[in-house]
Amino acid sequence: MVPLSWYIVLSAVVFSIGVIGFLTRRNLIIAFISIELMLNSVNISLVAFSHYLQSIKGQIMVFLVIAVAAAEAVVGLAILIALFRNKPTVNVDEINLLKG
């Protein structure tokens, strides 16, 4: 059987890839995919914990996360398209009207 720690390490690695991808890539779509990666790494660890603890709560949480991630994708892509219609670019550096 695969021990728990392997899953946790996998989850941590995928999460870190997501964080690094979000912080370093300049493309909005890639940033978006990185966030999905982070959410799914959480799902891996939740399911692993849920199996290890023999408690159903973690798996319920995973379903909620998947549902919310879908809603998030809808909202995010809609905002992206609304922006793209006004300014045809997906590069973060060119979206610089506001100076933050």
Binding site: I35, M38, L39, V42, F49, E72, I79, N86, I95, L98
Partner: peptide
């Protein structure tokens, strides 16, 4: 443009932060 730009920035950082919340929940749950 500036409304869309504000929304995309708010969205990306907000979603980024909620992933952290989830990771925290997962560790606490574990």
């Amino acid at each position: 443009v500036r409304s869309g730009e504000a929304a995309i920035k708010y969205f990306l950082l907000g979603a980024f932060s909620s992933a952290f919340l989830l990771y925290g929940i997962s560790l606490t749950y574990g």
